[in-house]
Simulated scan of single mutants.
Amino acid sequence: MPIDAYFIPYSLLWKRHEADRLANNPQRMLPRSTADLDTLATARGAEPYEINGVKAFITKASATVKITNLEVPHAQYLTSDFKIVIPAGLEWLSQHLAAPTAG
């Protein structure tokens, strides 16, 4: 999930595909989801509106959606700040991905 509450993907490729764009809008999908979904949200804390945006997004989740929120206090758009979330993000991924199997 993207940082800073930008949940609506924007692309010129949606041109002439408005129905598809709306159907794939996470803000519209999240409250209606019946999928057993577990996701990680991250937010930088330098701008309060971003933390509030992420929290507002999380409150819209249906009962089947679990969102773990990782806030980075005082973080900005700096590589050094993004590096802070990498260990926690990898830990979250390792807890939510199945181990490889021989196949």
Score class of each variant (00 low, 15 high):
Val54Tyr: 00
Glu91Ala: 12
Met1Leu: 03
Met1Gln: 06
Tyr6Trp: 08
Ile3Asn: 03
Lys66His: 15
Ala56Gly: 08
Val54Ser: 00
Asn69Val: 01
Ile86Phe: 10
Ala75Gly: 13
Ile8Asp: 02
Leu37Phe: 08
Glu91Pro: 00
Arg32Met: 06
His74Lys: 10
Leu70Glu: 11
Lys83Trp: 10
Ala19Leu: 11
Leu13Met: 09
Arg16Asp: 15
Ala75Phe: 01
Ala75Leu: 07
Met29Ile: 15
Val72Arg: 01
Thr34Ser: 14
Thr101Trp: 01
Tyr6Ile: 10
Gly45Leu: 00
Asp36Lys: 04
Pro87Val: 12
Ala43Asn: 01
Arg21Ala: 15
Arg32Phe: 05
Ile67Thr: 10
Ala41Gly: 00
Thr34Ala: 14
Ser80Leu: 06
Ile8Gln: 03
Thr59Pro: 00
Arg28Asn: 08
Asp4Lys: 03
Ala5Glu: 11
Tyr77Met: 12
Arg21Glu: 09
Lys66Ser: 14
Lys15Pro: 02
Glu50Cys: 09
Asp81Ser: 10
Thr68Tyr: 00
Ala5Thr: 11
Ala63Glu: 14
Thr101Gly: 03
Gln95Trp: 05
Leu70Asn: 13
Thr42Arg: 01
Lys60Tyr: 02
Glu71Leu: 10
Ile3Cys: 04
Asp38Tyr: 06
Thr42Trp: 00
Ser80Ile: 09
Thr101Ser: 04
Thr59Ile: 08
Val72Gln: 08
Ala63Ser: 13
Glu71Pro: 02
Thr64Asn: 12
Leu22His: 13
Trp14Glu: 06
His96Arg: 08
Ser33Val: 02
Leu97Lys: 03
Ala102Phe: 06
Gln95Phe: 08
Leu97Cys: 09
Ile58Gln: 11
Ala75Ile: 00
Leu40His: 08
His74Glu: 11
Pro2Gly: 07
Gln76Asn: 13
Glu71Lys: 01
Lys55Ile: 08
Pro9Met: 01
Glu71Met: 04
Pro2Met: 09
Met1Ile: 05
Thr101Ile: 06
Thr39Arg: 04
Thr39Glu: 08
Thr79Gly: 13
Gly89Gln: 05
Arg16Tyr: 13
Val85Phe: 03
Gly103His: 13
Ser33Arg: 01
Thr59Gln: 11
Glu91Ile: 07
Ala23His: 02
Ile86Arg: 07
Met29His: 05
Gln95Lys: 15
His96Asp: 07
Thr42Leu: 06
Trp14Gln: 08
Thr42Ile: 11
Lys83Asn: 13
Asp36Thr: 10
Ala41Ser: 02
Gln95His: 15
Val54Ala: 03
Ser62Met: 07
Thr79Asp: 14
Leu70Ile: 15
Leu78Gly: 06
Ser33Ile: 02
Asp36Val: 05
Phe82Val: 14
Ala75Thr: 04
Asp36Phe: 01
Pro100Ile: 07
Ala98Cys: 07
Asp4Trp: 07
Arg16Val: 08
Tyr10Arg: 10
Gly53Glu: 06
Leu78Asp: 15
